[in-house]
Computed example of a mutant assay.
Amino acid sequence: MRDEYLYAAAKVINDPYILVNVVSRRVKQLRRGSRPLVESLEKLAPEDVALREIIEGRISYELGPIGSK
């Protein structure tokens, strides 16, 4: 995982717990065959693709109501 991508994504999603969850969910999707939402001239790890998608605003998230089942 590239540090510069991690720091840039942390500016977009300030809460580290939410950032970890968003990245891990997207990495699972990419490993299952989902297409990346960003283009790259070099081969990137799924973690770096997910971070770039966050940085470029291609991925968003919503918080559910607290205590929902």
Results as ranks from 00 to 15, higher is better:
residue 4 E to G: 05
residue 4 E to R: 11
residue 4 E to F: 11
residue 4 E to P: 04
residue 5 Y to I: 07
residue 5 Y to G: 03
residue 5 Y to W: 11
residue 5 Y to E: 06
residue 5 Y to N: 13
residue 5 Y to D: 04
residue 6 L to K: 10
residue 6 L to W: 04
residue 7 Y to S: 13
residue 7 Y to P: 00
residue 7 Y to V: 11
residue 7 Y to I: 11
residue 7 Y to H: 12
residue 7 Y to F: 11
residue 8 A to H: 03
residue 8 A to D: 10
residue 8 A to P: 01
residue 9 A to C: 10
residue 9 A to K: 02
residue 10 A to E: 10
residue 10 A to I: 02
residue 10 A to C: 06
residue 10 A to K: 10
residue 11 K to R: 13
residue 12 V to Y: 00
residue 12 V to S: 02
residue 12 V to A: 06
residue 12 V to G: 03
residue 12 V to Q: 06
residue 12 V to C: 04
residue 12 V to P: 00
residue 13 I to E: 03
residue 13 I to F: 03
residue 13 I to T: 03
residue 13 I to G: 02
residue 14 N to R: 13
residue 14 N to Y: 04
residue 14 N to H: 11
residue 14 N to W: 03
residue 15 D to C: 07
residue 15 D to T: 05
residue 16 P to A: 12
residue 16 P to W: 07
residue 16 P to I: 09
residue 17 Y to H: 14
residue 17 Y to K: 15
residue 17 Y to L: 15
residue 17 Y to A: 14
residue 17 Y to E: 15
residue 17 Y to I: 13
residue 17 Y to N: 15
residue 17 Y to R: 14
residue 18 I to S: 09
residue 18 I to Q: 08
residue 18 I to P: 01
residue 19 L to R: 04
residue 19 L to I: 08
residue 19 L to G: 04
residue 20 V to L: 10
residue 20 V to H: 09
residue 20 V to A: 12
residue 21 N to K: 15
residue 21 N to A: 15
residue 21 N to F: 09
residue 21 N to W: 08
residue 22 V to L: 06
residue 22 V to T: 04
residue 22 V to G: 00
residue 22 V to I: 12
residue 22 V to S: 01
residue 22 V to P: 00
residue 23 V to M: 02
residue 23 V to P: 00
residue 24 S to E: 15
residue 24 S to C: 09
residue 25 R to D: 14
residue 25 R to W: 07
residue 25 R to P: 01
residue 26 R to I: 07
residue 26 R to L: 08
residue 26 R to Y: 07
residue 26 R to E: 06
residue 26 R to S: 04
residue 26 R to M: 10
residue 26 R to H: 07
residue 26 R to K: 10
residue 26 R to W: 06
residue 27 V to L: 08
residue 27 V to P: 01
residue 27 V to W: 02
residue 28 K to W: 05
residue 28 K to S: 14
residue 28 K to G: 09
residue 28 K to V: 12
residue 28 K to T: 13
residue 28 K to C: 07
residue 28 K to F: 10
residue 29 Q to F: 08
residue 29 Q to L: 14
residue 29 Q to D: 14
residue 29 Q to H: 12
residue 29 Q to K: 15
residue 29 Q to T: 09
residue 29 Q to E: 15
residue 30 L to V: 07
residue 30 L to C: 08
residue 30 L to T: 03
residue 31 R to K: 15
residue 31 R to D: 11
residue 31 R to N: 14
residue 31 R to P: 01
residue 32 R to P: 01
residue 32 R to Y: 10
residue 32 R to G: 11
residue 32 R to E: 15
residue 33 G to C: 04
residue 33 G to Q: 04
residue 33 G to K: 02
residue 33 G to I: 03
residue 33 G to S: 06
residue 34 S to G: 02
residue 34 S to A: 15
residue 34 S to P: 00
residue 34 S to L: 09
residue 35 R to I: 11
residue 35 R to Y: 08
residue 35 R to F: 06
residue 36 P to C: 07
residue 36 P to T: 05
residue 36 P to Y: 02
